[in-house]
């Protein structure tokens, strides 16, 4: 279970560029819950994921994963329990290295990298078997540099790598956004399949309301660094795309309600 309390992050504090990307975030994600984060551009979704992954230290607040406070842990240490897929299909793999070599790194995630041969025959067989489940024909191209694959294929492999060692938490940051519609649908379906099969706890950022409604069990809506709405188990069941759009519209209108409008309402709302 992921437990976030009072998480806050301000970039460039005290300068003209000061951006408060996260304020007072409280979030609980139960074990086995697949949660989507939606929100306008710049609402702090990626920042939240980065904070959980440990890309930077938060200004305040705590993050607890499976009962362990990981707030002070460096990114690489957290990565032992957290799998990640990035928005950029090129970010999750090392382009010049072969598929097998990339996967080998993921196979030992969170363990010491030893001085044994990386792509041993045993490892190779295991890799071939699991890559075959992707149904992309990649099992015959294990020695090709991963940079020669398409974005969708790379993203599918990154997903496979992120979940190779069952992570306590899977972080997906708009991982289908940079793909063409067909690959995006394929990767989204794969995501859902893996998460359900392994019963993973996952946090996915998405801009697609359709995805937010269809894939996860829980929706977290962010705006200006805050969580403004959550659709948990029961409400999630009845939520439609239009409801999410309405919720965003409400947020937009809430921002429109400035002191002038407030004065207007004070006079005429009676």
């Amino acid at each position: 279970m992921l437990k976030i309390r009072n998480l806050a992050k301000t970039f460039f504090p005290g300068t003209a560029n000061e951006v408060t990307a996260l304020r007072d975030i409280d979030l609980d994600i139960e074990d086995g819950c697949f949660a989507a984060i939606i929100g306008t551009n710049g609402s702090g979704k990626s920042t939240l994921l980065n904070a959980v992954a440990g890309a930077f230290q938060a200004d305040a607040g705590s993050i607890e994963l499976a009962g362990v406070d990981i707030t002070g842990q460096p990114e690489y240490r957290r990565a032992g329990q957290i799998g990640r897929v990035f928005q950029n299909p090129f970010a999750g793999t090392a382009a010049g290295m072969s598929i097998a070599e990339n996967i080998v790194l993921a196979m030992r995630r969170g363990q010491r990298q030893g001085l044994r041969r990386a792509v041993s025959r045993k490892a190779r067989e295991e890799i071939r078997a699991r890559v075959r489940t992707l149904n992309m024909g990649l099992e015959d191209r294990l020695d090709n540099p991963i940079g020669t694959l398409s974005g969708g294929q790379r993203q599918a492999l990154t997903l496979l790598m992120a979940t190779w060692q069952r992570p306590k938490l899977l972080l997906l940051d708009e991982h289908t956004a940079a793909l063409d519609p067909k690959s995006a649908a394929q990767v989204a379906a794969l995501t859902k399949e893996i998460i359900e099969r392994e019963n993973l706890t996952a946090l996915m950022v998405t801009h697609s309301m359709q995805q937010a409604v269809q894939l996860p069990d829980h929706i977290v809506m962010m705006h200006q660094g805050r969580i403004i709405e959550q659709y948990g188990a029961q409400r999630k069941a009845s939520v439609r795309v239009a409801d999410l759009l309405n919720a965003f519209d409400r947020v937009r209108r809430r921002d429109l309600l400035d002191p002038d409008v407030a004065a207007l309402l004070a006079r005429q709302y009676a």
Binding site: P74, A79, G83, A95, G96, M97, L105, G110, Q111
Partner: peptide, 16 residues
């Protein structure tokens, strides 16, 4: 080798 190619990916695999 991966560190040189993609440090972010290496971190994500739990390597310092």
């Amino acid at each position: 080798r991966a560190t040189g190619e993609n440090p972010q990916m290496v971190r994500a695999q739990g390597i310092n």
